[in-house]
C-alpha cells in the first residue's frame, strides 16, 4: 500500500506545483512507483511544469464521470520510468469531483503506486479539502514571507483538524543573502512561528524558472542549488537522515556558511 501526500500551502504562488513535480521525479528516480495528481481543477498546471501538456488525453473528471478508465487517464512521464500524472480538467470547476470520488481515486492508486502526491489548489475552501481528504499526511509549502507564513499556519490547523496529523514543512525560495542582512525571515524564525517539523529548505534559484520554461523540473539538473535541495527532501521522505545543512556542499564558505547563519549558528 502506497502513501498518499497532499502538497498544500494556503497562499498561491509559493511553489506547490514545482515541489510536487520535483518530488515526483525524485522519488521515481530512486525506483519508486509514483503518481502525481493535479487537484487544481480549472487551473491545471502540473502537466505544464512536468512538460507533459501535449500528452494529456483524459483527466480526473473523465475518470470520475466514467468517460475513461483510471489507467487510461494516467500520463506516463517521458524521462523517468514509473512516474505518472493524473491531470486536472482545465474547463471544469472544483465541484466536478466530489470528496467521495477523490477518496476512491486515491485508494485505487495507492494499491498500485508507492507514492501518490496530490498538488492542492490554493485556498482553504472545497478545492483544498478535496485535495486533502484522500491523503494520509500533508506537506506544507511556504516562502519566508509574512503573508505566506500566515496562510501556512491556517492550513496546518485545517490539516490537523481534518485528522491528517501534523504536516511537514518545506520552506521555498529562501534567499540566504537577505536572511543574512536581516531582511528576510530565517529558517529558525519560520520554525519558531509554525512549530512543525522541517522537511527541507529550497533556496531561491533562477534555474527553477529556466526548468519550468522548458518543462524539465529542476531536480533533473545536476548543478543547481534547488536540485540538491529537492534530492535531499526526497531522501528524507524515504526515511534517510540527511542533515539540513549539507544540501549545499559548495567549496567556498559562501552558501554553506550563510546557511549556518540562517540557523543562528546552530
Amino acid at each position: 500500500m502506497g502513501e498518499v501526500y497532499v502538497i498544500t500551502s494556503g497562499k498561491g504562488g509559493v511553489g506547490k506545483t514545482t515541489v510536487t513535480a520535483n518530488l515526483g521525479i525524485g522519488l521515481a528516480l530512486r525506483g519508486s512507483r509514483v503518481v502525481t495528481i493535479d487537484a487544481d481543477i480549472g487551473l491545471r498546471n502540473l502537466d505544464v511544469v512536468l512538460g507533459l501538456e501535449n500528452r494529456v488525453v483524459f483527466n480526473i473528471v473523465d475518470v470520475v464521470e466514467g468517460n475513461c478508465r483510471l489507467e487510461q487517464a494516467l500520463v506516463r512521464d517521458k524521462r523517468v520510468e514509473n512516474l505518472f500524472l493524473l491531470p486536472a480538467a482545465q474547463t471544469r470547476t472544483k465541484e466536478a469531483v466530489s470528496p467521495e470520488q477523490m477518496i476512491e481515486v486515491c485508494s485505487k492508486l495507492r494499491e498500485v503506486f508507492d507514492y501518490v502526491l496530490i498538488d492542492s489548489p490554493a485556498g482553504i475552501e472545497a478545492g483544498f479539502r478535496n485535495a486533502a481528504i484522500g491523503a494520509d499526511k500533508g506537506i506544507v509549502v511556504t516562502t519566508p514571507e509574512v503573508s505566506a507564513v500566515r496562510d501556512a499556519d491556517r492550513i496546518i490547523g485545517l490539516l490537523e483538524a481534518m485528522g491528517k496529523g501534523t504536516p511537514q514543512l518545506i520552506i521555498n525560495r529562501l534567499r540566504a543573502d537577505m536572511v543574512e542582512r536581516g531582511d528576510m525571515l530565517g529558517v529558525r524564525d519560520v520554525l519558531d512561528i509554525l512549530a512543525i517539523p522541517l522537511l527541507g529548505i529550497v533556496p531561491e534559484d533562477e534555474e527553477v524558472i529556466v526548468a519550468t520554461n522548458k518543462g524539465e523540473p529542476v531536480i533533473l539538473r545536476e548543478n543547481s542549488e534547488a536540485s540538491k535541495a529537492f534530492k535531499n527532501i526526497v531522501a528524507r521522505l524515504e526515511g534517510e537522515d540527511i542533515p539540513l545543512l549539507e544540501f549545499s556542499p559548495k567549496k567556498d564558505a559562501g552558501f554553506l556558511g550563510k546557511l549556518f547563519k540562517l540557523f543562528g549558528g546552530r
Binding site: 514571507e145 499556519d153 525571515l185 530565517g186
Partner: peptide, 19 residues
C-alpha cells in the same frame, strides 16, 4: 529594527488572533 524582526513580531501577533 531589521525588517525580518518586524515581520516576525507582526506574524506572532497576527497568529495569536488567527488561532
Amino acid at each position: 529594527e531589521r525588517s525580518s524582526q518586524i515581520a516576525k513580531s507582526r506574524l506572532e501577533i497576527m497568529l495569536k488572533h488567527d488561532r
